[in-house]
Write a protein that binds this DNA or RNA. Structure first.
Length: 263
DNA sequence: ATGGTTGTGCGACAA
């Protein structure tokens, strides 16, 4: 089972780019972020023609996540559950889960973690609260002791080696110590960072800013991650970053990241 | 220090 995550940065502007990549990469499951579309306006038909089921959780203009799958899906859940009845509902469209029925059943969560800039401020507070909520949800899911994949745009640079110019990010919400500590707490629950597990060397990026010639200078960061439960990590066969997609016409600022599971 | 780019939807705003 090949599972990918791809921040598409506007599905309407990049429907053809996504179709092209699907045809060549042939993933079974794709978690999309920043679809920037309400559910009714998502261009489902071309993906359904390729054999993909389409489950969306969108909102107007911003954010929005989706799962495309050519394997059957069960138990689709939208929104991150509140930690208690006193908690606000998760009002931004940033989380979708489904069980993918392959050779094995795999629970797949597609997430678009808040950017959090500028920090400090209310947006950064929202990011940290969201990460705390994700931590609680992950604890619950890990309790099932089943293959689980948490994938998406985490908007967190895990370590200095995950940025071409780490000094540029010192005061950024993507690299602040609190952001990295919150990601580490999540990983410490027992998750495996698939790209790191398969490739220890630095310099593997998933995002290059549209501005200041970041792509041309390879000034990238690694912020799109696939984190695996122990049961999923046991099934890990391969993982990769489709970097070449960033060099095409009118690309997203992110590229697809994927794993192959024996499932 | 500032400005640089892009998508959505048509004015900002988020990134």
């Amino acid at each position: 089972m090949k599972i990918a995550t791809y921040n598409i940065n506007g599905i309407k502007a990049r429907t053809q780019a996504l179709l092209d990549w699907l045809a060549e990469a042939s993933p079974d499951v794709v978690c999309l972020q920043e679809i920037k579309s309400v559910d009714e306006a998502f261009p489902r038909e071309p993906f359904e023609r390729l054999g993909y089921r389409v489950e969306t959780h969108g909102m107007k203009a911003f954010n929005g996540v989706a799962i495309l799958s050519r394997l059957p899906l069960e138990d689709v859940t939208r929104r991150l559950p509140p930690r208690s009845d006193a908690d606000d509902p998760d009002e931004q469209a940033r989380w979708i889960e489904a069980t993918v029925l392959g050779k094995r059943a795999v629970r797949v969560c597609g997430l678009y973690l808040p950017n959090g800039n500028p920090a400090p401020g209310p947006k950064y507070d929202y990011k940290l609260a969201w990460m705390d909520r994700m931590l609680a949800r992950t604890r619950t899911l890990l309790g099932q002791e089943e293959p689980l994949v948490l994938c998406g745009d985490y908007n967190v640079i895990p370590q200095a080696e995950d940025a071409a110019n780490p000094k540029d990010w010192i005061e950024d919400a993507l690299f602040l110590p609190q952001s990295r500590a919150a990601l580490q707490r999540l990983i410490n629950l027992g998750l495996t960072d698939a790209i790191r597990a398969r490739n220890q060397s630095p310099g593997h990026y998933t995002f290059w800013d549209f501005q200041r010639g970041a792509w041309e200078r390879n000034n990238g960061i690694r912020i799109d991650h696939l984190l695996l439960s122990p049961q999923a990590a046991d099934l890990l066969v391969d993982a990769g970053i489709d970097k070449a997609v960033r060099g095409r016409d009118k690309p997203s600022d992110h590229v697809p990241v994927w794993i192959e599971l024996d499932a």
